[in-house]
Amino acid sequence: MQHLFGTVINVTLIATKDLTVKYGQNIVLKNISLEVQAGEIVTIVGPNGSGKTSLVKTIIGALTPDSGSLHIKKNLRIGYVPQRLNIDHTLPMTVQRFLNLTQVLDNQQCLDALDVAGAPGLLNAQMSNLSGGQFQKVLLARALQGEPEILIMDEATQSLDQAGSADFYKQIETVRDKKGCAVLMISHELHVVMSASDKVICLNGHICCSGAPEAVAIMPEYHNLFGTGTDGTLALYRHNHDHRHDEHVHSAEETP
């Protein structure tokens, strides 16, 4: 349950039950049961090949589950930020045209969208001329249009450096607080991501463990999956969510 804008929201956006997905004979996801509620930030972590991307593909409808149930809220507005988006060099595309890809925005809306995503002044640039970070922010700006109920991001910070991705996640949290949309993200950058999440799901073909970030961080299943070596660097900053606490302070501090 989330308290957002003074009202209690408890709408399930995505619910899976015993979801199993195969590639040919290979079982990539086994008995996945999870829920994403409105306004919630859910992070999926897991090693390479653990089925993270397959899970996201199944949720957006690009893969068909072999068994189990997948329930998506009717007419769910999804803002999707893909892992990588290669715009072929032969396809000319300005940032403005890209923002208008699946909806019609006027000039001012495009400018606002870029401001919110932290990429002002790029309106007339060609997509193929953007740096990795700029490109990612434009992807985010596009995904945020049309009042999405959920942002789905697949390793959205892959092309960013450490500082850049910490910055990006702060941006996500700001956006969530401003717009009230849920966030479902995949990441391997545990230390940066975890503290910003309401729920962490540890994936390795099946769900190893899940729960609040603080709880997951000390679970043995989690350490089996990622080793204990990350202890020292875990949770670079801890975030005080203003919907959980009365104080409206965003602070970052080191935790052991």
Binding site: V56, K57, I60, G61, A62, I78, Y80, P82, L85, I87, L91, M93, L101, T102, I152, D154
Partner: peptide
Amino acid sequence: WSPMLVSTLNEELAYSNG
């Protein structure tokens, strides 16, 4: 036009927009 263009850019992006 629009669905074909989105599909050309990225298949997952297309799926996520129905």
